[in-house]
């Protein structure tokens, strides 16, 4: 079973081909890493999958179903959930309200005009806040959270949608090492019904989480393979060597 299939997906901004003819197949239940230098088109690709942006070419298939023509909200209801590279939360609302908004769509009655307790949604919210370590901050406004806490909240919100395909765009950016570890554990502990696609510059995190990795460069797929294949590939090195410090990061990036 494939969770996600991209066929010749492309997106242009003016003359720039930010994503160019990308083919990608992700089997259901896998944890798949997506890496590449800055500006490679990773975030754009995520937005094309989620429907935040429209493709200029190609098609997106979710569990075998062509969703290219569907709007973002429709795709979300089919099970796609994403965290954005730049936090996008409901800042004036409390932490629990942020998660509840996502949880109530699956576990509650979002259309109800009458006040309801939505016990199931609240339970789920409690679980998720505990899982990301924000239980003590539940009534703080999201805007009062630190950067790392916001990233954790983003993940709780994304998980509260009960996705079948979870897209994480640089979830560890701005997290402390301890927070990063918690993130890795959280993703590893996700049930296998959830397929995970993760973009991350911290390759340590990627190689700990991902079973397969795709390298994107200048909008095109350079390589897809196991973490060790990717680590050893010469062309990948070359792509990264264009940005010197990234190359160093890459050499260091191994398990442990």
């Amino acid at each position: 079973m494939t969770a996600l299939e991209l066929r010749g997906v492309g997106r242009q901004f003016g003359a720039l081909r930010a994503v160019d003819d990308v083919d990608l197949t992700v089997a259901a239940g896998t944890r798949h890493g997506l890496i590449g230098p800055n500006g490679a088109g990773k975030s754009t690709l995520f937005k094309l999958i989620a429907g935040t942006l429209r493709v200029s070419a190609g098609s997106v298939l979710l569990a075998g179903r062509d969703v290219t023509g569907l709007r973002e909200s429709q795709r979300a209801r089919l099970g796609i959930s994403q965290t954005l590279q730049h936090s996008s939360l409901f800042l004036p609302l409390s932490v629990q309200q942020n998660v509840l908004l996502a949880a109530q769509r699956r576990h509650g009655n979002p259309g109800s005009l009458w006040p309801r307790r939505q016990a199931a949604a609240r339970d789920r919210m409690g679980e998720l806040l505990a899982a990301v370590g924000l239980s003590t901050r539940r009534s703080a406004p999201a805007g009062d959270l630190s950067h790392g806490e916001r990233r954790q909240l983003e993940i709780a919100v994304a998980l509260a949608c009960e996705p079948s395909l979870l897209l994480l765009d640089e979830p560890a950016a701005g997290m402390s090492p301890a927070e990063g570890d918690r993130l890795v554990e959280l993703v590893q502990a996700l049930p296998r019904e959830v397929t995970v696609l993760i973009v991350e510059h911290d390759l340590d995190v990627v190689f700990r989480v991902a079973e397969s990795v795709t390298v994107l460069h200048l909008g095109q797929v350079l390589l897809t393979g196991s973490p060790s294949q990717v680590r050893e590939s010469a062309s990948v090195r070359e792509a990264y060597l264009g940005t010197a410090d990234r190359a160093e990061l890459f050499v260091q990036g191994g398990p442990g």
């Binding site: 979300a76 996008s88 609302l93 769509r105």
Partner: peptide
């Protein structure tokens, strides 16, 4: 209130 504070995010949550 979610729409008021962040409409694009509401869309990506499936609303």
């Amino acid at each position: 209130r979610g729409i008021r504070d962040n409409e694009p995010r509401m869309r990506s949550l499936g609303y």
